[in-house]
Design a protein around this nucleic acid. Structure first.
Lengths: 341, 341
DNA sequence: GCATAATTTCAAAGCGCTTTGGAATATTTG
DNA sequence: CAAATATTCCAAAGCGCTTTGAAATTATGC
């Protein structure tokens, strides 16, 4: 069914029907109601392409998918996407996923822009001086950044308080009496990783606890690296009595390493992991349940979509940045250090 | 830059330029070359919406994202999406991700169809008598199924040989001398899960090895369930000397359980997992490396996108179904059973 | 009952592209 | 060189919707 037909059915003009559906003020509310009822009844919905052609908006948000073995496209991504789509679908906006060719992100972004297939772009996993952010800002193409950079030029972003999360976690461990705390986090260079290290350092510094550089590890998020690095950490003497893990994936590996050394979790060695809230990896169901710094990456996706919509509605990007606090959830994997024997 | 401007630049008519770009035969190859060079140079690319409006194709493929805590949206999904996008982008096709509201998939599909926002749909994770497949077949809306059903009506699908994979894996373990083999796979009802159980049963039956129903477990794919179920399995007497795991997530939990019982992997207890090939979970890098049945879910995505394109080009769905063989890759986590002590 | 305001209609342009049918021009062929 | 073939152009319709400006109709206020 097309607009013309719907209008005929209702005995109204196309103009009025179109106006009713698009929320124009000059249409009688009774008429508007009648129109939307009819639209529902006949299953009418405007042809997306025609509509977009007419209003000059593409109606899609772009996001790149690195197709190398990068750490950027992991389980986090699907949760994040899920949140995005939840909000975007309200405005009939598509989420366009475009792959990166030859690992050349910058030109992938340029292509995305010039092909006029998206109204705006979402950038994730920034470094402190991210070149993609610099490029998009300069090109004046609308985008929202998931994360933060040190780049001054105004742009929209949403980040969680990574420094605060790790500061909290480390402080808590210090309160419990730990003096040898290690962290295994994401790759160096990424903002979130740097911020977490900052938070960790602050907490230790505050108590005058010396920082052992061997105890600060930056690695990809995976079970395997978590295992390997934790094994290494636990082989030192003295070994850390607590480990901060940057992701649940890493934490799984750390769990395994602690167990394989014969230590009890939450006793000889404690662990606190950052939890992005995956439906299939529940921290509280684990044995023992895992203490986490918790922040839903999915909710972040929803919020970022909201910001995107606002930008396209003309809201200046200067107003659009927020930092979300992260809560520390105490469970069994963290406890006062126990000296074995 | 728009078509009109490009044509002016070239001193050609819009018609010719459009024809050149769209591969019409009546245009001189030298001209065609000149046009594409110019298009490249000026960064011209047709306005997607106008083009789609003109040719009457939406230019997007739909896929639903259950937004409950279902097992359907896990790490597999992102890999699969990645493969899809890789192929779809060649044809400038978007991948439209739409969330399911109120857990009502059927009406989400209906909405997707009636909103005319997609040309075709991808359905994943089917059950043997999947109602979505039945509905879409009946509605005659183009779709490709990732997996298989027992539904007779012709439709396009691609599946891997799940029965063969588990048959192979179980046979291999039997060859090594195992007589107590357990499997922890996905939820009951899903085709892939049923097929795997079938393959497992066939292998045991063939050797006359009795099947212990306690050794067949159907659960969600997650580290946690893998751990819990493996612990249970290993508490039986006699306990299984080998475990088949339906996913790498599950396998991780099983690993942990085996270790926590003090057994050596590949000695007292062997494990073979199905590997969908995640960039961040490498079976061969694990310690010990993991024997797997391997089939890239990403490649499946690429191939399914290819099938989709064909359907839209008019190829009858009757021709479009394939079963991919699965290779068994022997590594260290599987070996002849060792009697402890 | 008449001026004023609120709705609705009409007719048409425009979004940028594809496609068509016939005409015009260029290139080849025998 | 005429005839046949290959290219390109021209003009216009059409895809389905939004938007505009002016006119027509209906409702409301005093």
């Amino acid at each position: 069914m097309k607009l013309k037909e719907l209008a005929e059915q209702l005995g109204l003009s196309q103009t009025t029907v179109s106006r009713a559906l698009n929320g124009y003020p000059e249409v009688n509310s009774a008429t508007r109601e009648r129109v939307s009822q009819a639209a529902l009844k006949f299953g009418y919905s405007a042809n997306a392409n025609a509509r977009r052609l007419a209003i000059g908006r593409i109606g899609a948000i772009g996001i790149l998918m690195p197709n190398d073995r990068s750490e950027r496209f992991g389980p986090h991504t699907s949760e994040f996407f899920s949140g995005l789509a939840e909000r975007l679908s309200q405005d009939e906006m598509d989420l366009l996923m475009s792959p990166v060719i030859n690992n050349d992100e910058i030109s992938a972004y340029r292509r995305l822009i010039s092909s006029k297939r998206v109204d705006a772009i979402i950038v994730t996993g920034p470094t402190l001086m991210d070149e993609r952010v610099a490029m998009l800002t300069e090109a004046k193409f609308p985008f929202v950044l998931h994360g933060r950079t040190n780049i001054e030029a105004p742009h929209a972003w949403l980040d969680i308080d990574n420094a605060g999360a790790f500061r909290q976690a480390a402080s808590h461990l210090l309160d419990l009496g730990h003096r040898h705390i290690a962290m295994i986090d994401g790759l160096k260079g990424h903002t979130f990783s740097e911020h977490r290290e900052l938070g960790y350092r602050e907490a230790l510094l505050e108590r005058g606890v010396p920082i052992d550089p061997r105890f600060i590890v930056h690695e990809r998020f995976s079970d395997e690296t978590g295992f390997r690095e934790a094994q290494r950490l636990l082989s030192y003497a003295p070994h850390p009595t607590a480990i901060l893990a940057g992701s649940m994936m890493t934490a799984l590996g750390v769990f395994r390493a602690i167990r394989s050394k014969g230590y009890q979790l939450g006793k000889e060695v404690s662990i606190i992991a950052h939890d992005d809230v995956f439906p299939y990896l529940n921290a509280s169901n684990m044995v023992p349940s895992m203490t986490t710094t918790r922040s839903s990456i999915r909710s972040a996706g929803t919020r970022i979509a909201e910001m995107l919509v606002r930008i396209l509605d003309g809201e200046p990007v200067e107003n659009l940045h927020e930092v979300w606090p992260v809560e520390l959830i105490l469970r069994q994997s963290s406890g006062p250090p126990v000296i074995p024997g």
